[in-house]
Design a protein around this nucleic acid. Structure first.
Lengths: 167, 167
DNA sequence: CTTGCTGCAAAGTGTTTGCATACAT
DNA sequence: ATGTATGCAAACACTTTGCAGCAAG
């Protein structure tokens, strides 16, 4: 959904920023543009490394921080001990907003867009209400469901996953 | 809101578990019962330490993991690099379910119960739909809003917090 | 008594920082 | 030319693991 728009938007935003257009930055953006996974810094590093071995992990961290700053990347903590990153779509591109379904056994992450419309509508109302009530300026929200994915259900590990919850 | 019920429920659940009722475990549960904050392992350790200096940080970690297992504690990752814990209410006690409002500047966490009813209703429907669609067994969910709290709004740091989102 | 639980120290993991060099503008 | 960005190594912060001694049942 709008991979090109996404690319255009984020590249433009990067070019228009105060920051220098370096090879590592372009390479990292490219990796993010060509995946729909939620990659960790290490994973991004490895992918960049494969055709740009001069890259350093530190640079990946710093670049991701920068991308989050200028708003082209979103950072998630799903509770498995490492941060994960995905491209933001920006306010211009509608329809690719999604939430997450996370398997507490294998850490698989599923994006879903089903039922999103109702969720977003409710969230907007809630946001307004909370802003007024708590004098809070809300910039973002997260919704995620935790449970067992199809595969792990079948394996039917007797692990107790109740009570596990991560924001 | 049912602090006693909470205490009863979690103590009972601990006693009925296979696990031994040790002094550290009781002490840690007590700390959790007497706060409404979202404490980190380290913070819990410090509070236990003040009247039970024999406690070790390792035990706190292991005990919290255990409590999560038996379902009396919930674990959250708000994206500030440390896990936070709060007592679960258990399915028996209704009305104390809440979601979170998180300040991306000072990391303050506000529990809110406002608008919760509508949220829960929608979440239930969504859960059902997602379970059917993705063959997923959902055990839990999270909702959190990120933004600037009243105090940090006023200080009006020019830090750009857009695009910051966790989980 | 027996086995699980504990504390300490050490190891692990993901992330950040200091600094000299390299590069974009 | 000038100051930002980079990579390396070291430092950090949180969490987990190994192990010998302790204590709950």
């Amino acid at each position: 959904m709008g991979a090109d728009k996404k690319a255009q938007w984020s590249r433009k935003r990067l070019e228009e920023s105060e920051y220098r257009l370096t090879k590592p930055r372009r390479a990292i953006l490219d990796v993010l543009l060509h995946t729909d996974e939620h990659l960790s810094a290490e994973e991004i590093y490895q992918r960049v490394y494969s055709d740009y071995p001069a890259i350093g992990l530190t640079t990946v961290y710093r670049t991701l921080e920068l991308f989050v700053q200028i708003g082209i990347v979103l950072r998630f903590d799903f509770g498995d001990g490492r941060a994960r990153f995905e491209l933001s779509v920006g306010p211009e591109v509608q329809g690719s907003h999604h939430h997450h379904l996370i398997c507490t056994n294998c850490n698989k992450i599923i994006d879903y867009t089903d039922f999103i419309e109702d969720e977003i509508e409710l969230l907007k109302k809630t946001e307004k209400g909370l802003e007024a009530l708590h004098n809070f300026k809300i910039n973002n929200h997260i919704i995620a469901f935790y449970g067992l994915c199809e595969d792990c259900r079948n394996e039917n590990k007797e692990k107790n996953n109740e009570g596990m919850r991560d924001v």
